[in-house]
Amino acid sequence: MEKRVRFKSSWLPWLLIAPQMAIVLVFFFWPAAQALRQSVMSQDPFGNNSEFVGLENFERLFADASYLESFKTTAFFSVLVAVCGLSIALLLAVMANRVLRGAGVYKTLLIWPYAVAPVVAGVLWLFMFASPMGVIAYWLRMLGLDWNHLLNSRHAMALIVVAAVWKQISYNFLFFLAGLQSIPKSLIEAAAIDGASPWRRFWTIVFPLLSPTTFFLLVINVVYSFFDTFGIVDATTKGGPGKETSILVYKVYYDGFKAMDMAGSAAQSVVLMCIVIALTVIQFRFVEKKVQY
């Protein structure tokens, strides 16, 4: 079956795509080009004198042991955010899909956190975990756990993961719910008649049919945890204790906007860009083959 729409004129498709292309060029390609240019320059904060230094900024970066360490931190953080975010959202979507009464209310409440800015999300969770007044810190102490994300690196990591996941669940939920609703009911009914348990029906029918959605969300979540989470880190742990929660994008933000090291920050963002391009290519090449559309 031919799904493609065919245009008769040759310029109309270009015209229709032009506004989107303009936005992509101005807001994505132009800043990316700027970052590339700045990463090979050495510049004072005011931009009064800049000098071409070649790859010096990159050499300095990779000579820094703490920078290499933060790759591990970032990988750990991203895997946690993607896995937790996707599985919790899937669970919620499956449950919301079965709700008959008041489904609209549930859905609205679950989508709400997406409207919250990352910094605000960070501050909200920080309040709840703030020792000794925060609600959750208080409960944890009653359970015998002395919560201290200022000095305990595991607690600090847990805090930023919780805040980052909470903010992203809504987005994942929305797509999973749409994906679930587009699964033909007849398939599930047929399996039910054949005697498959709900558990079996989910893993053999629903989950495989959701794989395009899951794959898309995996890419989006990895990009999210790589790029969009610096606000959460800045509001909660500031990369501490030590450098234990200093993920790559937070260091980009810190060096550029707090320490005024534009060149170093640009070099890091170029490295980050390469990582995400590589990850996305890998995902499309290898993971996509397992996806059934």
């Binding site: 200022l150 305990n152 690196s153 204790p241 030590g242 060096d255 320490a259 005024m260 090291d261």
Partner: peptide
């Protein structure tokens, strides 16, 4: 120079002591 970064380094290193 780069005092902001130096203070941050001190914070990072001393947190290891307090912990």
């Amino acid at each position: 120079g780069n005092f902001v970064q130096i203070r941050n380094i001190i914070d990072e290193e001393l947190e290891q002591v307090w912990a």
